[in-house]
Design a protein around this nucleic acid. Structure first.
Length: 300
DNA sequence: ATCCAGGCATGCA
DNA sequence: TGCATGCCTGGA
């Protein structure tokens, strides 16, 4: 077996999936017909053979299928999701527009690190910050004459203090990250195996969310993202500035609406598929330029 | 030159 | 609960 193939019932679009903002480290090639992504301990090459067909190659084949089944969320009932989030004309339109966008299930440590870094930042800067980090601390992997870096394990980052992270340009987020490196949050440590930054599956949605928020530097938005993208809990509806604009315009039209209410509204509207709805809306809001900031009026 | 981003902690009503 | 404020840095 030199490669692995997937045929889906519904589209799996690489461009939409990787560009929608859920993941930061990937390298598109050949106009998104191919995407390279460092995942855990290997580099994976994902090829769009057709709208519903993907082919997977990797520098490491051992355990590849299990890893990709999880990463690609092959068990999601995508068709049902598309139908269930299309609650009205607007969402039908968005659902159609985003069809093929898939949620991925990412590594917990990398995901948490990335989203803590993301606060009050922007995608180019986040990518740049992560790139600095992995070049300094990650393991280098050459694959098809390209250079990639695996995300460093917590152990590899031992000793990274606030000062070092600040020098990497992380700003005030350095404090949060160095503290996490310093000691893994208790509930993320598997007492039996000693493994760190892994999830206790016995926790329900609200329990885990509460625990994640107890981590210094992790608030509602970051915990929701981590729980959605790394714990794979699709009920989460992270509310960022884009989501605020969208929801205020269409589904929370009262004058004063808190982020709390918006989050609740999203979960109420979309139930177990709230995470997909959120990512669809986010992708839509950013690509359709309906929410672009109005240009400042020229002086004169 | 300000101003503000894919938030969060802190302190206060 | 809900609000205000400061926080790093880089791009508009």
């Amino acid at each position: 077996m030199a490669s692995l193939s997937y045929t889906f019932q519904e589209p799996f679009n690489l461009r939409k999936t990787f560009e929608c903002g859920q993941i930061f480290r990937y390298v598109p090639a050949n106009n998104f017909k191919t995407v390279y992504a460092p995942i855990r301990n290997r580099v994976v090459k994902i090829i769009q053979k057709s709208p519903k067909k993907l082919e997977i190659q990797s520098n490491r084949l051992e355990g590849l299928e299990t890893l990709m089944d999880s990463f690609l969320r092959v068990d999601d009932n995508y068709k049902e999701m598309l139908e269930e989030i299309a609650i009205d004309t607007l969402m039908k339109k968005i659902s159609f527009h985003c069809r093929g966008l898939r949620l991925l299930k990412q590594d917990l440590f990398e995901c948490m690190f990335s989203f803590i870094l993301s606060q009050c930042s922007n995608i180019p800067r986040i990518k740049k910050n992560l790139s600095t980090l992995v070049q300094d601390y990650g393991r280098k992997v050459n694959y098809e004459n390209r250079r990639f870096y695996l995300f460093p394990t917590p152990e590899m980052l031992k000793g990274c203090d606030e000062e070092i992270f600040r020098e990497m340009g992380f700003g005030y987020r350095a404090k949060y990250l160095s503290r996490i490196i310093d000691s893994c949050p208790d509930f993320l440590e598997n007492k039996k195996s000693g493994e760190k930054f892994c999830l206790d599956c016995s926790l329900d949605t609200e329990e885990l969310n509460k625990k994640l928020k107890s981590i210094y530097g992790v608030g509602q938005k970051v915990s929701d993202c981590v729980q959605l993208f790394a714990a794979g809990d699709l009920r989460l509806f992270p509310v960022d500035t884009w989501m605020k604009k969208f929801m205020k315009k269409y589904y929370c039209t009262q004058k004063k609406v808190s982020e709390r209410k918006i989050r609740h509204k999203g979960q109420e509207l979309f139930g177990k598929w709230a995470g997909y709805a959120q990512e669809f809306i986010f992708y839509y809001a950013r690509t359709e330029e309906v929410f672009e900031k109005p240009k400042k009026p020229q002086k004169g």
